Simulated scan of single mutants.
Amino acid sequence: MHYDATVRYRWTLNKAAQGPRMLAPDALVRHLLRENLADIAHKYRILDKDAAQNAMNALLGQGVQDDEKRVHIDAYVELRISKSEKAAAVQRLNEETKLRTAHARETIELDLMLNRLTDPSLGPVWWLASMGVVYG
């Protein structure tokens, strides 16, 4: 699952930067944008599109630069998800919720059984009754 992203950007070279002249600044800019935005996108679920977009634009709003500060990038991103991606994500979320609910229910049942078995006065009586042992 993935976002469809539209990135609008503008870059400027820092003429005061030291080092060799950049041969392909636009390729570097696209690489920096792709890497920075992908790092943020991986932290969000597909259904959290708005939060992911806000986080990306917060980073882009500060301006992005390469390590040598040779290029400064101003950018804005807009994210979209297709209907099929959204439907798949909703289905996956529902399945995860069912699984977590079943796991939580089983955990509670096991905790109750542990409490019952370790109760000094009730444990042995309950255990014998559950095994079908008849008194008297």
Rank of each mutant, 00 (worst) to 15 (best):
A89V: 07
G136A: 06
V133Y: 03
V64C: 10
D67P: 04
Q62C: 10
V71W: 04
V90Q: 05
E106R: 08
S82N: 04
E35V: 15
L28S: 09
P25D: 00
R30P: 10
V7K: 00
L32V: 12
D4C: 00
N57S: 09
Q53E: 13
V71A: 09
Y3D: 06
L128I: 02
N94Y: 01
R70C: 07
H2W: 00
L117N: 10
L117W: 11
D66I: 14
D67T: 12
Y44N: 15
K15L: 09
E106C: 14
A104Y: 12
A88C: 01
V77A: 15
E85S: 10
L59F: 04
N57T: 13
W127A: 03
R8N: 12
D111P: 07
N54D: 09
A38V: 13
A58S: 10
A27R: 02
H31A: 07
K15W: 02
R70I: 08
L37Q: 08
M56I: 15
I40P: 07
T97N: 09
V71M: 05
L23V: 09
D4W: 00
R34S: 12
A5M: 03
D50Y: 09
L37F: 11
H72S: 15
R8P: 01
D111F: 04
S121I: 05
L37A: 14
H2A: 06
A104W: 08
K86T: 09
G19T: 10
L93H: 12
W126C: 01
R100L: 08
V90S: 02
V134A: 06
V29R: 00
A16V: 11
K49V: 15
D74Y: 06
A104I: 13
S84N: 04
K86N: 03
L60E: 02
V134Y: 00
H103M: 08
N115R: 08
R105E: 14
N57I: 08
G63T: 08
E109I: 11
R8C: 10
Y44P: 15
I46H: 02
G19P: 05
K98R: 11
M56H: 11
M131L: 10
V29C: 07
V133H: 01
I46N: 05
Q91N: 14
N115M: 06
H31Q: 09
L114Q: 14
L128Y: 02
T101I: 14
K15V: 12
A5V: 12
L23K: 03
K83W: 00
T6Y: 03
V64Q: 05
N115T: 13
M131W: 05
L47D: 06
D67W: 01
D111G: 11
L28D: 07
R34K: 09
T6W: 02
G63K: 00
L117P: 05
L23E: 00
L110N: 13
W11S: 14
H103Q: 13
S130N: 15
L99E: 14
D119K: 01
M113Q: 10
L23W: 00
E35N: 09
I73E: 02
R30G: 12
H31I: 03
L37R: 08
L33N: 07
N54R: 11
L33P: 07
